[in-house]
């Protein structure tokens, strides 16, 4: 495939920047850039401005490392939440996903990644060192480790567990089981096996 050269250098630059985004190739970048152009200057400026403030004004919450506009994020600032529970997640997207369930009212701790030496990520690159102290100081009684069920997620969960296990708290992990709406026959054996090992009292299974 030979790259077609674009008729304008400003366009070329915008396409180059857009193509750096995950999941966006050069073709899509050209389509997006032309779309922005076609929509007119107001649209483009508003987009540019929002990206500008995203880059300059958002901070990271000093307590949980979620994204925030101030030193402490909205979740951490909300005193009505349950201070006895902290949920440890990989990144900000997981906070959003768990918030959307409406099932968790405690606080979060965003690690900012998982341990992955092949990608050059070690524990020192994650926000894990401050977690034990945070747990001790805030009267937390339970830490829920909600990390991906991958080799890297499990390794990181184990690392977090080791850092916390001397504390007088409960450390729990997400239940892993058959997806709702899934036919048992099509569930993979590992998941199905786990679901049988970690079966729950029937009354609990009725809760929605």
């Amino acid at each position: 495939m030979n790259e077609q050269s674009l008729p304008s250098r400003t366009l070329e630059r915008a396409v180059g920047e857009l193509a750096k985004l995950p999941g966006i190739g050069r073709k899509s970048a050209i389509r997006l850039a032309l779309h922005i152009l076609a929509k007119g200057p107001e649209f483009g400026l508003s987009l540019a401005e929002s990206i500008h403030s995203l880059a300059t004004e958002t901070k990271q919450c000093q307590r949980c490392h979620n994204i925030s506009e101030s030193d402490i994020c909205q979740i951490c600032a909300d005193e009505r939440r349950d201070s006895t529970r902290i949920c440890v997640v990989e990144d900000v997207r997981d906070v959003l996903a768990i918030e959307n369930t409406g099932q968790f009212k405690g606080y979060y701790h965003v690690l900012g990644g998982v341990i992955n030496p092949m990608a050059g990520v070690g524990p020192q690159d994650l926000y894990v060192a401050d977690l034990p102290e945070r747990v001790e100081k805030t009267g937390c009684e339970e830490v829920i480790v909600a990390l991906p069920a991958t080799a890297e997620g499990d390794t990181t969960a184990f690392y977090v567990y080791k850092k916390l296990k001397h504390l007088p708290i409960t450390i729990s992990a997400l239940a892993r089981g058959v997806a709702i709406g899934e036919e048992l026959e099509y569930a993979d054996e590992i998941t199905l096996g786990r679901s049988i090992l970690n079966r729950v009292p029937f009354e609990n299974s009725l809760k929605i």
Partner: peptide, 21 residues
């Protein structure tokens, strides 16, 4: 054995990570 491949893949992945480390 339905669990074997999963366990083997996990082992190999962790091995790669250990070697990378």
């Amino acid at each position: 054995d339905g669990l074997y491949l999963h366990n083997l893949q996990r082992y190999n992945r962790l091995l790669q990570q250990r070697n990378a480390y």
